[in-house]
Design a protein around this nucleic acid. Sequence first.
DNA 1: CTAGGGTTAG
Length: 699
Amino acid sequence: MFPTYLTPKKHLKNATIFLFVFKKIVPYSFNQCKFYSNQSLPLPTDNSRHAKAIKDGSVQNLNVANHLLNVYGRSKNLSHALKLFDEMSHRDVRTWTIIVSTFARVGSNMIVLELFNDMQNEGVKPNQFTLSSVLKCCSSLSELRIGKGVHGWILRNGVAFDVVLENALLDFYVKCEDFGSAKWLFELMGERTSVTWNIMIGAHLNTGDVDKAVDLFRRLSFKDVAGWNTIINGVMRNGFERIALKLLFEMVKGGTLLNEVTFSIALVLVSSLIDLELGKQIHGRVLRLGIHVDGFIRNSLIDMYCKCGKMELASKVFEKMDMDFRREENSIEEIISRSSIISGLILNCEFEDAFKTFTSMIHKEIEVDRFTVTGILSACANCGVLQLGQQVHALIQKIGHKVDAYLGSSLIDMYAKCGNLGDAQMIFKQTNDKNVVLWTSMISSCALHGQGREAVQLFEFLTSEGIMPNEVTFIAVLTACSHAGLVEEGCRYFRLMKEVYGIKPGVEHFTCMVDLYGRAGQLSETKKFIDENGIYHMSAVWRSFLSSCLLHRNVEMAEWVSEKLLRLEPLDAGPYVLLSNICATKQRWEEATELRSLMQSRGVKKHPGQSWIQIKDQVHTFVMGDRSHPQKDEIYAYLDKLIGRLREIGYSFDAKLVMQDVEEEQGKMLLGFHSEKFATAYSIISTTSQTPIRIMKNL
DNA sequence: CTAGGGTTAG
């Protein structure tokens, strides 16, 4: 259906009209977005110890400097640590170990590898600590080659192997999924600690072998906190939340002391179970233990409240943190927490607040990282605010964020949903590491714009690149087929999904198929499909069927489908209104009235259709039969003229089967006053003829 | 060894 293109009129020459559907209306007024400028951080003049050491010259002493470096490193004060490190005239192994572990701690893996190189160039021989840190970086980056190089280097240089280093190496092989080397190393190890076993359990959990992991864990004679944490976290990540919860209770009962990692995992568990009461209990425990000062814990708390839909509680935790961290504005903890708050707002559909928080971050010159930006772009996509989305895109380029698969996908989605398929395609071409999600975003975008052939072609490219399509990819390609009338292709992909990729079709896939047949007008085929697949209980399927019946003006079928839907979804307004309209046109007044009173007694409410447009920095929202706009007279006058012209060239209104509340509309001219038409008319009279018109709507 | 925030979906 989209984009809808209206025949060009004299007035509309060169302008295109788009209609897009969005999740939520956002009457958002745009502030002028001031961009973040890369200002350098203030010098550490406030750190008295450092200042004193510079003053009395003791900073030249290696021990003093190393100590200071360690303090900066542990407080994650990267800029100061790096500055001190650069200024040091002498550096020893400890210096390098501190700086390497500082960057390893915050996950700046590339910097760690660079430092490792520099260290060797300066002729300093790495010790076990440095090597362990470097190996950890290799596993985070999945850099099997570099890690193997480090392993070779260790062997060549005769660095003594101890359990700690061996464990680090084992973990590296496990994380890089080189299970052959991992097994070989494990068997060679002379000493195995609980850490060794925990790594092996983690390996099973990461490959999805939950049974094996739990079995191995049960047989451990000594279960330490990390072991418990590993198993609980891993079982949860594999989707067995309830078992994870059981294990957590078992851990508490068994008397193992919980650490901050346990609490963090427990809070994530609560978020995925959406168990607010348990979350509050854990919060209480956290406060009693005094570990609420931990950045990880706080953020897990914020995130837990967001996921449970309690934004006020999340903000409370955040504000408390804001007070404590006021002295370190750009601390990693603060950035992460802000990002969590923003994604929480987006999750709870509070887009306007999300935008406000985001702009306030920019005004305060607080660093916005990739996570925040990704969330904001997704919000822009969801409510169709192209201008803000474009500014965010510019911001990304200004800060110099690498466009990874996450960012790329959200940019593509944003541009496509805001009507710029071309820009979406450009982002797709420019993104280097394309994963399934990125491909799927592009396919969905084509589908949204009715470009069925392109979507199919993209799908073929994707499989030829050796990427495994997932269930969402199939939803995208099936939608594309149904919107473009590619019935045969759609059926082929549906079979391909089941037979070649072994994906069990879900409600969405069935709905796509019903839509595919239905839109193409093959209504009896649709019925057959529903029968064959035994999907009578899926209301989404019937809803799609119903709209196809209306599209092809099949009143009998529409009536039959409506009754089915009515039974499945007694709270859905659509079938009531439709059925009563059908009854009314057939003069079956009693039935029509009955349906209306049934609807009222069940408290079924119809969502009002709304459309909105953005002109300059104003959002104009319209509802059906709207008379509240300050320029209503001009809008009505122009609309009359436009509709008159449309009639002249043969356009007729079909009022029979449109879902409308007749009572509400009594006395109004029915179809001339859809909210989209107001938006269109207003757009035409208030912009030049070259300006594209983008209309957002909620239904 | 174990913990936190991000993308696609009629």
